[in-house]
Amino acid sequence: MTQRQINHGIFGLFNGMALIALLFLFIIQLDWRSIVAVVAGLVSSSSLWFAYWRGWEPARPLFIVLLSLILGFGTPNQLLVTHFNHTIYAVPIIALVLTGPIWTAGSALAILAIFAFRANGGPYFNPLELITFVLIVGGMVLSRLAIDNTQRLEAAKREAEEARARAEQRERELSKQAEELAQRNAEQQRLLELVSLLETPTIVLAEGVLLAPIVGALDTRRAQALTTRLLSDVSAHRAQQVILDISGVSAVDTQVAQAVIHTAQALKLLGCKVTLTGISASVAMTLTHLGIALNELQIVRSPQEALSRELRTEN
């Protein structure tokens, strides 16, 4: 049961007792003064109960004030002057559950002051009774403080557990995101390798002869990838000749020519001959205007011609 349900129970218990008292006054003892007091208390407590049900928290301490006034001024005088009236603890007990330590002690002291005023001191100045009063009310206050402290510790524990659960959930989410990111990176790496393979393919034309067709623009990245791949394939196939076909290159400039020359020089270091094919009339005109000489390369018109020459040389 939650604290709010307990509070509603106290409101309901008081209103139920007020209805029983009102019924008793009507049936057994028709005392209009008492009836008016009970009806006023019932209306007031019902209004506070409704306000609390609507979410108005000040209804709880106002209810304690109402009970203190009803008990303090509604108790008959003959029950106050003869002996210490222990109904003085009724309201503090309700305050102990409904509000807190301050209202518990305050309601007890307020009712004690009212009783002492109405009884002209009387038994309410008795040292033994006052010591008992202080012990009982002090015990109520200390017990409420202990309960509040326990509730705060439990609330802090729940918050810590919830924070740990959120942290673990966040850690799992981050771990999942890291795995997904790693998978995407691996997939991107595979795609880059596939693109690199498609950009710089090598074809085995004959034993010891590789064909490397170059298609599209040849920038610095592609030139480096071309050199790296050809060096790897030449070593793997133990090729003696590589045919570089540039018929698919859309435009040839100084950068493209230098890239082809550097690739050829790197292949020659492995003892591999390099033949350049696919130079069109427009490309030849461009190379002439740029003043680029390809003296280090053997140049033929097509890969078929280069392969035929290689086969004739072997025979």
Score class of each variant (00 low, 15 high):
120 N>M: 09
134 V>F: 08
133 F>P: 00
169 Q>A: 13
170 R>T: 07
114 I>L: 06
170 R>E: 12
185 N>R: 12
116 A>K: 03
185 N>K: 13
192 L>A: 15
117 F>K: 00
177 Q>D: 01
134 V>A: 14
174 L>G: 02
118 R>A: 09
155 A>N: 13
117 F>R: 00
127 P>T: 04
170 R>N: 10
163 A>K: 05
154 E>M: 09
123 P>W: 01
167 A>Y: 01
142 L>M: 11
161 E>S: 03
160 A>T: 07
152 R>P: 00
142 L>Q: 02
156 A>S: 09
166 R>L: 15
169 Q>W: 03
152 R>I: 06
135 L>H: 15
145 L>D: 02
162 E>P: 07
140 M>R: 07
124 Y>F: 06
112 L>E: 08
138 G>W: 04
158 R>A: 10
114 I>S: 03
170 R>M: 10
174 L>P: 01
116 A>V: 07
150 T>L: 13
149 N>R: 11
120 N>Y: 02
133 F>S: 00
134 V>K: 02
157 K>R: 13
116 A>E: 03
122 G>D: 02
156 A>P: 06
137 V>Q: 01
147 I>M: 08
111 I>Y: 04
141 V>H: 05
155 A>P: 12
166 R>F: 11
176 K>R: 14
132 T>A: 10
146 A>P: 03
135 L>V: 15
109 L>T: 10
135 L>T: 14
136 I>V: 15
166 R>Y: 09
166 R>D: 11
159 E>F: 12
143 S>W: 15
110 A>G: 03
119 A>I: 08
154 E>N: 10
157 K>E: 12
115 F>Q: 06
131 I>E: 04
140 M>F: 15
154 E>R: 13
135 L>Y: 15
130 L>W: 05
180 E>F: 14
186 A>L: 12
146 A>R: 11
126 N>Q: 04
163 A>Y: 03
145 L>M: 14
190 R>C: 00
138 G>V: 08
149 N>G: 06
169 Q>M: 08
160 A>H: 08
174 L>A: 09
173 E>G: 02
192 L>I: 11
116 A>F: 02
165 A>G: 04
193 E>I: 05
178 A>T: 08
151 Q>N: 12
163 A>T: 04
120 N>H: 07
148 D>C: 08
132 T>R: 13
121 G>F: 03
172 R>W: 06
160 A>K: 08
177 Q>P: 01
109 L>E: 06
179 E>A: 12
124 Y>E: 00
164 R>C: 07
162 E>S: 07
155 A>L: 10
174 L>Y: 14
127 P>Y: 04
176 K>C: 04
158 R>T: 07
152 R>C: 01
127 P>G: 03
144 R>Q: 14
176 K>M: 12
114 I>P: 02
108 A>W: 01
130 L>Y: 04
172 R>H: 09
168 E>P: 04
109 L>M: 10
186 A>H: 13
191 L>R: 12
